[in-house]
Design a protein around this nucleic acid. Structure first.
Lengths: 177, 177
DNA sequence: CCAAACTACTAGGACGTCCTACTAAATACC
DNA sequence: GGTATTTAGTAGGACGTCCTAGTAGTTTGG
């Protein structure tokens, strides 16, 4: 994923397609292969994620954040002491350990978190959110909420439906028991 | 996204969480901020996409492909002459022009497509799928279909629901009219 | 009590995505 | 026709994600 992504910068100029490219592709797909519904759902999922992450990053750009970094900050905000070992963060955020290192490094460079050795475990690093980090989270959150997390247009029912349809998928993948 | 991603490599070892981290976060979220349903839906969307792309890339890895490259090959397969200008490909695949350059360069390096100057437009490059490319698409597709595009576990109804919920989102983003 | 196994994190690299220039060719407009 | 604008693609860079390999600290077992 990426930094400030303005999904519209190159889309806005060029006229949108006069047809749904995914729906069109699914028709051609069906003539040759199977699993049409799956193919259509997967492609939609990929594209929708791309659209949403792009809009979220666009909103967060003025705060010098990306959605990945925002999520990490929020996680720290939710923790009792405002700090967590990196490994724990990766577990909760469900990203690879090395991704956490990358994210935290940038947050630290921006003065939003500090990295200190874990007092009880010499291997671990404690990541703690700074006052500046807490303030930024509040401002950034307000913007995201105001924009309905780029999901304006979906009804409450559709939002719940989206979540509930994806939940078994996450469960099957072993995200939780 | 990425290359051969084995979502299980670091997940399999560590026990899955005993709770749904997204559901848990949404509870904490609700105590402070609004748009809980949106936040939960967005987080689910992000994570689900990550899971699916990881499994798809894993399946395609034995063929030396990623899902992005696979999609490009399929698009060429669907075209009349088996060739398209790069710009057209980006339009259909709905990715940035520079992403197409990157994808096609790797496909060319693998001998799956050729790049030739467009006969009628000196600015454009025609990307054409090779016989090896066509054969590979068939094999890779068979594997993806056999794996239900990593969506095993979702019913036909859920698949249609997923697509239909995401369609207005894509439409609002200006993907099509 | 010391060696073996495990755990937490970092280093370096691949990939796909985006963005901002920049070049070259085609088209539009005097 | 000749210049100005638009369009197609490339170059180089940032970011997040993954992976493999390696280091240092902790825990386990004999």
């Amino acid at each position: 994923m990426a930094p400030g992504i303005d999904s519209l910068s190159h889309m806005a100029r060029k006229k949108p397609l006069s047809f749904d490219p995914i729906d069109e592709a699914s028709r051609q797909w069906g003539r040759r292969w199977g699993a049409v519904e799956q193919m259509r759902a997967v492609t939609s999922l990929m594209r929708a994620q791309q659209i949403v992450i792009g809009e979220l990053d666009e909103i967060l750009r003025v705060h010098g954040l990306t959605f990945a970094r925002f999520e990490a900050l929020v996680l720290l905000t939710f923790s009792r002491r405002g700090s967590l070992p990196l490994g724990k963060m990766g577990e909760r955020l469900q990203v690879h350990p090395t991704s956490v290192t990358s994210i935290v490094r940038r947050l630290e460079a921006a003065g939003l978190v500090t990295r200190t050795p874990h007092p009880d475990d010499g291997r671990a690093i404690l990541c703690e959110i700074t006052p500046a980090g807490r303030e930024l989270v509040e401002r950034a959150t307000a913007d995201l909420v105001a924009a309905d997390f780029a999901l304006r247009g979906l009804t409450e029912e559709q939002l719940r439906m989206l979540w509930s349809v994806l939940q078994p998928l996450r469960h099957t993948a072993g995200d939780f028991t």
